[in-house]
């Protein structure tokens, strides 16, 4: 159990800076999800915490102890890898107990700890199997078990669910979250899946091109995205972004007149989440519907606005589209409108 502090951490590979200064205080027992597109540096950041990559600049503290130059084993961390990285020739029990064996614990104690962890993860029946005799979900559990058995103060997860099928992913997501809550171990979890980020995180870091775009609770990020990038990355389907012009008392999207929630004047980027749009015969937005994707509970409508920009709306219930494209008028509440600076992408208001 420990806090983790990132103090302006940077990473350079030769002349290219891949992490451009990340600062964060992780509280004891907190579940932090680092989310971003591939190549944004999220895995590098995690590997720096693990000690698998060196830190070029800045300071990393684990439990108030400077960890920059510690070996991975001395950092009191455990890591779950994307491909599980189970030792193929060892049984489940040996895999879980290997770290303890290296640490020189007596055999009986190792066996007891492995038993406890196995019981927690419902692996007791599988302890004698080899990894290749296990299903993906079971391997995932063994990888978790290997991490738990050492009772570390920080858990690191590197996209642990990306190799599982969709249904299992949902189940494991819950299991990991439950387990972490039960054990109360500080966790850093890397994923590219914004649904995982939303559902699991106490707080999340949205990363883009080596920078933390926003750090906050999932709902915070969803409701008040700090940047255009965070706004588009979080939420599914992703937010519609349109160029608008703020004027006195109104926001103009071409010829469409919307309320101006911030009173900002001048060119802006306007973000509208598809699920916040409501059908409204008087609504300012006119969309020519081209394609409907019924998802059961709701329907995604894809189409174009008058000026030709692509636009998506998510409406509850089932909607069908007449061939050729009807015009659908939509409205939105002012509090659901997100305004961003057109040059910097930063949130306005």
């Amino acid at each position: 159990m420990a806090t983790v502090t990132f103090d302006n951490i940077k990473k350079r590979f030769g002349p290219t800076e891949v992490i451009k200064g990340v600062s964060l205080d992780v509280a004891d027992g907190e579940f932090i999800v680092i989310v971003g597109p591939s190549g944004c540096g999220k895995s590098t950041l995690l590997r720096m915490v693990a000690g698998l990559e060196t830190i070029s600049e800045g300071e990393l503290r684990i439990g108030n102890r400077r960890a920059n130059d510690l070996e991975p084993m001395d950092r009191d961390i455990a890591m779950v890898f994307q491909n599980y990285a189970l030792y193929p020739h060892m049984s489940v029990a040996q895999n879980m107990g290997y770290g303890l064996r290296i640490a020189g614990l007596p055999k009986a104690e190792i066996a007891a700890k492995v038993q406890d962890a196995a019981k927690l993860l419902q692996l007791t029946e599988l302890l004698d199997r080899k990894p290749r005799q296990l299903s993906g979900g079971q391997r995932q559990r063994v990888a978790m078990g290997r991490a738990i058995v050492r009772a570390p103060s920080v858990f690191l997860f590197d996209e642990p669910l990306s190799n599982l099928d969709a249904k299992l992913r949902v189940q494991m997501r819950l299991e990991i979250r439950e387990l972490q809550a039960k054990l109360g171990i500080t966790s850093l979890y890397v994923t590219h899946d914004q649904v995982e980020a939303m559902t699991m995180a106490d707080r999340m870091i949205v990363m883009n091109a080596g920078r933390a775009e926003q750090i906050g609770t999932p709902l915070d990020v969803y409701e008040r995205p700090a940047t255009l990038f965070a706004a588009q990355f979080i939420g599914s389907p992703s937010m519609n972004v349109l160029e608008g012009e703020g004027r006195e008392g109104a926001l103009w999207l071409g010829a469409a007149r919307l309320p101006n929630p911030t009173g900002h004047r001048g060119p802006v980027m306007l973000g509208l989440r598809p699920e916040h749009l409501v059908p409204d015969p008087e609504g300012p937005i006119a969309m020519q519907v081209q394609l409907a994707e019924p998802l059961g509970a709701n329907t995604l409508l894809h189409g174009k606005l008058e000026a030709g920009q692509g636009f998506t709306a998510s409406l509850p219930g089932v909607h069908t589209v007449a061939h050729g494209g009807e015009i659908l008028r939509l409205g939105i509440k002012p509090e659901n409108m997100h305004l961003f600076d057109r040059a910097t992408g930063l949130r306005l208001g």
């Binding site: 693990a50 990285a85 030792y87 290296i102």
Partner: peptide, 14 residues
């Protein structure tokens, strides 16, 4: 042999 195995062993303290 996947790099992750070597890394897992490092994290395990080997």
């Amino acid at each position: 042999v996947p790099d992750e195995l070597a890394e897992a062993a490092r994290v395990d303290g080997a």
